[in-house]
Amino acid sequence: MQCVILAAGEGSRMRPLTTSRPKVMLPLAGKPMLEHLICNVRDAGITEILVVVGYHEESIRTWFESGSKFGVSIQYVTQRRQMGTADALKTVEPFIHDTFLMLNGDMILERSDLTNIIDLPSPVMATSTTTHPESFGVVTVANNKITSLEEKSLHPKSNIINAGAYLFDAEIFAVLKKLSLSTRGEYELTDALTDYIGDGKLTAYPLSVWMDVGYPWDMLTANEHLLERISSELNGTIEENVIVKGQLILGKGSVVKSGTYIEGPCIIGENTVVGPNAYLRPGTTVGNNCHIGHAVEIKNSIIFDDTKVPHYNYIGDSVIGSGCNFGAGTKIANLRHDHGPVKVGGRSTGRKKFGAVIGDDVLFGINCSVNTGSSIGSGTRVAPHTLVTGMIEDKTVVK
C-alpha cells in the first residue's frame, strides 16, 4: 500500500512561524511535525510515501531527501497552484497503483489507528470529536457509515468531525475530475465524497487520538502530548550540581552547566548550552544550537533552533522562532489578571496560560516586556525597556 501526505500549504494561520517554512516543518518534540506522521505511517507497515509539496518545498525535500534514513521511500509531487485538497490529490494520480492512505500533513495521529484504517475496505474517512465543531467539516454517522458532511457550519449537526485521514482506491480520481470550483475558489476533496456518502459507501473510523495543529497554541498541546511518551536519552554533557527530575532527552554536543534544575519531560537539542543556574520546567523543548543562560526560566515552551535566551529571562507557554535573541531581563507574561483564556489577535487560544508567538530573527533589547497573547512578526527589532503587545507585523521596529 502507498500513502499520500498533503504538505503543500503555507499554513497562514500559523504566521509568523511559517514566514520561512511550510507548516508541516514546524517542530514538535524536537522533530518536524511531518516526521512524526511519516514515522507512524512507516510503523503501520507502509513504506512507499508520496508527499505533495508546494510552499517552501525545498525545506521538506532537504530534510527528508529520499526517505531512506527514515526507513521509507519518498517521492515528491509539486502542487504548482494552491487550489484546494482535491487539486493536490489529483497531482499524484499517475503514481498511484491501487488502494492508498491519504493524510493531511498537519496533524498528530496514532500508529495503531493507521494500522486499523488500512485493514478496512475503502473508502474510509477517519473521524474525531471536538468541543468546537463549527471550525471543521462536521459529519453525521449511522451504522459506521458517514451519512452527511457539512463544512464549517454555524449550526453543526453533531460534534463529530472529518479528521483529514482517508483510505481510497484509484476510483477517487474519476470522481475528482467531475468537480467544479467551490465558493472559496478551490477544488474541495469533501465535495468529491458526496457520491460515496449518498451511496452509503463511506465508512467512518473514529480515531483514538487526533490533534489538529491549526494555530501556534495548538503546537503546545501537541508538544505536551508527545513529550509524555519520551524516555530519557542523554547524549550530551551534564556537569556536577545539576538536578534532573523526570524524562530528559539531551542531544549530542549539548552541555547542561552547573546549578541548572530540569523538571521533565523536556527535550534539549544538539550543540545547545543550558545554564549555569537555569530552570527548565515540564513541557519545554529547546532546539539545536541554542543558548539558555544564567537565571533563565522556561516553562512549557517550544524554542526553535539557533535562538539565544541568555540572561535573566522568563518564557512561559510560548512558541519562539529560530535565530531570536532575548536581551537581558526580557520576559514574556503568560497569565491574564482575570485568569480568563488568552486571546491572540482577538481569537481565543482556549488556554488559561499562553504567552506569545514570536517569529524568526526577532531581536529584543534589555528589559523588554512581552504581554500575554502577543504575536511578533519575523525580523522585528525591539528597543530596550519596551512593552510589546498585540499583533506586530514582520520587520517592524518597536520602540
Rank of each mutant, 00 (worst) to 15 (best):
F173E: 01
I249D: 06
H291Q: 15
T372V: 13
V273Q: 14
S254N: 14
T194A: 10
L176S: 00
A170G: 13
Y314V: 09
V382L: 03
N277H: 11
V24M: 04
D87G: 11
K157T: 14
G264S: 10
S301V: 05
K90C: 13
D199I: 08
R351E: 02
V256W: 02
M391G: 07
T194K: 15
G350R: 07
T284K: 15
R111E: 15
I376N: 01
I146E: 00
V370N: 02
E10R: 15
I267R: 05
I38H: 03
H56T: 08
A142G: 04
A8E: 09
I298A: 04
E224C: 08
G355P: 12
K299P: 05
K69E: 13
N300K: 09
I376S: 04
A86P: 04
S73M: 10
L227T: 13
G340V: 11
S12I: 15
L34A: 07
K69I: 13
G185Y: 00
N40A: 12
E48T: 14
H132F: 15
Y314R: 10
T91N: 00
V357E: 03
E134S: 14
N277K: 09
E35W: 01
D195M: 10
E171N: 15
T131E: 12
T386K: 07
K299A: 11
N289S: 15
T203I: 11
N371P: 03
G164F: 06
T330R: 03
H132I: 14
C39L: 15
M14P: 06
M125C: 13
I146V: 13
G345N: 07
R61Y: 01
N241G: 06
K257Q: 14
G11V: 04
V41Q: 12
T284E: 01
G269Q: 11
I358K: 11
T131N: 14
S73I: 11
D212T: 02
K257G: 12
I302Q: 02
T115S: 10
R281N: 08
P94G: 10
S182R: 02
W63I: 12
C368W: 10
R229W: 04
M211N: 10
P121R: 11
A7R: 06
V255A: 07
P282A: 12
C3M: 06
T99W: 00
S301Q: 04
M25Y: 03
L37K: 09
G293L: 05
V213R: 00
E58H: 09
S180M: 06
T190H: 07
V388F: 03
Q82L: 12
Y196N: 07
L154S: 14
S135Y: 05
